[in-house]
Amino acid sequence: MSSTYNSNAYNFGFLDENTKRMLRRALLKAVAIPGYQVPFGSREMPLPYGWGTGGIQVTAALLGPNDVLKVIDQGADDTTNAVNIRRFFGRVAGVATTERTADASVIQTRHRIPETPLREDQLLVFQVPEPEPLRTLEPREAETRTMHALADYGLMHVKLYEDIAQYGHIATSYDYPVMVDGRFLTSPSPIPKFDNPKLDRSPALMLFGAGREKRLYAIPPYTRVESLAFDDHPFEIQRWEHRCAICNAGDSYLDEVVVDDRGTRMFVCSDTDYCSQRSDNAATEEAA
């Protein structure tokens, strides 16, 4: 792949090389201290804050001309924001893109982890709106940083305790807090808790970018990631009574789709690549 530069006079991957170096240094620090939020000089990107500016900067700092990029939003490659970010990198980096999880070397994601297991040679880049898992409980940044420094996380358990006291179980369904390597309380980004187990000891390096909040963090390969729970109220993931209406998967995260004005619903895989791979395979088997 040689089309590294393009017509609009921006550097490969939009960011200048010094900025990329700054990002890589911050990412190295993040990898060295799993789950710790590294403050970094987030740049103003030509995409709005909250739309993936952190993820885009991480991807831009790591993309090489031979990379194959996949971008998903809500598990799907064809949602408008995913398309827009893919278009952006097509325009400023000219790298190959793919919708197949298995073919990608870098995957930027918003709100999901692909169903297809990731490998050691893949990078998963998360877009993070609010990196601080304690923020809703404690708004002061100076205070939350101290709480992390001292691993003073009793407050987080107060919240979980209250959930159980009130609802009989922990009522957090997404952005479910985790302990990374037994040390830092960390936001997994707003993925459904269904995806939390995929974080634990993942072979792929997971990088998290929060552009507006100017923080980076990482979960290095094979790191222990535990979802918070009580001994007698263990962590549980969402389950469905249905299977995917398209590929019949019984093990994937399902989106609910309203198909008519009488409220008829169907359930389909949120991971569109996973779903179409399964459908294709089924079709091939049938034909054979």
Binding site: D152, V158, Y161, E162, Q166, F230
Partner: peptide
């Protein structure tokens, strides 16, 4: 006190901060 959480959570907070993780026992 933490006024926005229950009496039970107020009493249990310090125990949880010390690592107590058994809801029933708390």
């Amino acid at each position: 006190l933490r006024l926005n959480v229950s009496a039970g959570a107020n009493v249990a907070e310090r125990l949880m901060a010390l690592g107590q993780r058994d809801y029933g026992r708390l």
